[in-house]
């Protein structure tokens, strides 16, 4: 061990007669911090190695979405956006597409690898033997997924702003953007942790078919929450959908389109983060410790 931390006494459980052999030369806290950082470093190195996969998987869906809805449709005269008009539609879609990209990072960067590591390769067993509490191994996954979500948002933003054939009216509210973006990334990553620990290789098709599909279609990507007022029951029902708040939050950060009150968006996103994180960590522990 190379850290120069003064050695801290080992937890005082040494019973009489049990010789203190090579006791930890570092406190548990120092060891945990170093291990957490190294786990994060490992994930970022893997991300760098896999950029050729990361970039296409991140941009393709938003690119196609934006291309078809905001380039092809206006060009062929097939109006989308209803009463709001094509330009407004392009504008409100920007936020939805970024929200979608961040949500998908939570699934692709956290949930799917975790399903594989738990169910097929058992690689997670080694990660769990690193000298830090198991819950921190799970939290590291959230942080690493959130960083990848942040990259995804950065990559997707120019696409959503440039591709549409009709003008996109952006109005960046920096305070909201800089506070909301990390929060949304962490929440989506925590959601990914929860999915990754709840689903297994056998049930993972359900994740896409039954869970992700309604989340994306009913996640206020293509419309604002307020515009759903004529369908009141739907407007109320989708309040359980975390993507609604992500889309609306990004919309408030990037445009002047009227959105749900930020007094609702922030607390709900924080609440969901805590909820998904708590469930995810709990299930993670349950999966790795018999």
């Amino acid at each position: 061990m190379t850290t120069t931390e003064p050695s801290t006494p080992t937890p005082s459980t040494a019973s009489a007669g049990l010789a203190p052999l090579e006791l930890p030369t570092r406190s548990t806290r120092a060891a945990s911090t170093a291990a957490f950082g190294a786990l994060l470093l490992r994930d970022l190195v893997v991300l760098r190695k896999n950029l050729r996969e990361f970039i296409p998987r991140t941009i393709l869906q938003p690119l196609l979405l934006v291309f078809v809805f905001t380039y092809v449709f206006p060009k062929i005269g097939q109006g989308v956006g209803g009463a709001t008009g094509a330009s407004e539609f392009s504008t409100l879609l920007v936020a939805g597409v970024i929200g979608l990209a961040v949500l998908f990072q939570g699934i692709q960067a956290v949930a799917l690898p975790m399903v594989t590591e738990f169910g097929v390769t058992r690689e997670i067993e080694d990660r769990v033997l690193a000298p830090l509490p198991v819950s921190l191994v799970a939290i590291e996954k959230i942080v690493s997924g959130a960083i990848q979500g942040l990259f995804a948002a950065l990559i997707v933003f120019p696409i959503a702003a440039i591709v549409p054939a009709t003008p996109v009216h952006l109005k960046i509210h920096w305070v909201i953007l800089l506070t909301f973006t990390p929060l949304a990334c962490i929440m989506c990553s925590a959601l990914g942790l929860m999915f990754g620990t709840v689903f297994n290789p056998r049930t993972v098709p359900m994740l896409f078919g039954v869970v992700v599909l309604p989340i994306t279609f009913l996640g206020c990507i293509y419309y604002t929450w307020a515009s759903l007022a004529p369908i009141r029951w739907l407007q109320i029902t989708i309040l359980v959908n975390p993507l609604v708040y992500v889309s609306e939050g990004f919309r408030a950060a990037l445009t002047d389109v009227p959105t749900m009150s930020l007094w609702a968006v922030y607390p709900v996103v924080i609440g969901f983060t805590v909820l998904f994180g708590a469930i995810g960590i709990r299930f993670f522990r349950r999966r790795v410790i018999a």
């Binding site: 080992t10 459980t13 019973s15 090579e22 006791l23 930890p24 548990t28 033997l129």
Partner: peptide
């Protein structure tokens, strides 16, 4: 106990030793 560390009470400390 592994190396004097209770593996249930202090798993993160024990993991440094194994």
């Amino acid at each position: 106990l592994v190396g004097g560390v209770d593996v249930v009470a202090h798993p993160a400390a024990a993991k440094q030793l194994i």
